[in-house]
């Protein structure tokens, strides 16, 4: 356990060395937040005050929470592991006496922990000033929201981890990567809330882990769900966690047996 904690701490420190990148990232997140919020707000005012149960301030809250969580939850992913398989550096990871999945998760957790303040806070502050936010006034949603964030961050990690692990079997993962990004952006509720989807698409989205990766923590934190609904959503997240973890475990197991370490 101690080794994973050390990895988390070191990853936090590694990311904290790139402060300029964090500042420019926060700026980008906020600008895109402004664009997305203005688009949604003009759509809502054209529709006559609300769309799919979202009032103007609720839609703005959805946008700003999404922008704030985007980076900490790891929705951009990283192709580091695929690159290490390609270069053969994965050999070094495999000769360490730690579990591959857990060691990369621990590092991603450190990254997420660092990203919370510089990447998460600015969009919320700007949102509060520009459009106002509608946030719950009780502690419950924040407590469950925290658990949901950890679960969503882990799901995002596992999703990209699985795509990365495809590198054990195929030389180039770019195609799978793009397909995954398109599906995830749409079905996670990043572009528009999942509840705005037509019924058939909503059914499809709910059959995938994607809504658990962003929509769930956003809804819980915004106080859109009551306690029972929130618990059910977190339960769904944990279910998908078990599924993806099993998938990742099997892929590491069979992939590393199949692996041909490239280069000398």
């Amino acid at each position: 356990m101690n080794a994973y904690w050390e990895l988390t701490k070191s990853s936090f420190r590694r990311h904290s060395t790139y402060r300029l990148a964090a500042v420019s990232g926060a700026f980008t997140n906020s600008v895109f937040g402004l664009i997305r919020a203005s688009l949604l707000l003009s759509a809502i005012s054209t529709a006559g005050g609300s769309i799919g149960g979202y009032s103007a301030v609720e839609a703005a809250t959805y946008v700003w929470l999404g922008q704030a969580l985007l980076t900490p939850l790891g929705l951009f992913g990283s192709a580091e592991i695929a690159e290490r398989v390609k270069s053969g550096d994965i050999a070094v990871d495999l000769t360490r006496s730690v579990n591959l999945t857990a060691s990369y998760w621990a590092q991603d957790l450190g990254r997420a922990a660092f990203d919370v303040l510089p990447r998460g806070l600015p969009p919320l502050v700007i949102g509060a000033i520009v459009t106002g936010l509608s946030l719950p006034t009780t502690a419950g949603p924040y407590a469950l929201g925290f658990i949901s964030i950890i679960a969503a961050m882990t799901l995002n990690f596992l999703g990209f981890f699985i795509i990365n692990l495809l590198a054990f079997w195929v030389v180039e993962i770019r195609g799978y990567w793009m397909l995954y990004l398109v599906l995830m952006n749409l079905l996670s509720g990043f572009l528009v809330p999942v509840s705005w989807f037509p019924q058939w698409m909503l059914d499809f989205a709910r059959a995938t882990p994607f809504p658990s990766m962003l929509q769930t923590p956003v809804d819980i934190l915004a106080g859109r769900t009551d306690v029972v609904e929130s618990l059910a959503l977190v339960g769904t997240q944990l279910l998908w966690l078990a599924v993806l973890l099993t998938g990742a475990h099997l892929m590491v197991r069979f992939g590393s047996r199949k692996l041909v370490v490239q280069g000398g």
Partner: peptide, 26 residues
């Protein structure tokens, strides 16, 4: 030791790799 690969953490000070390695070896 793979002469052409590194087991150290690339963007951390050299001394920071050792507590991690120590913990990995329990």
């Amino acid at each position: 030791v793979f002469g052409q690969r590194s087991q150290l953490w690339w963007d951390l000070p050299l001394q920071d790799s050792f507590p991690i390695l120590g913990a990995m070896h329990r």
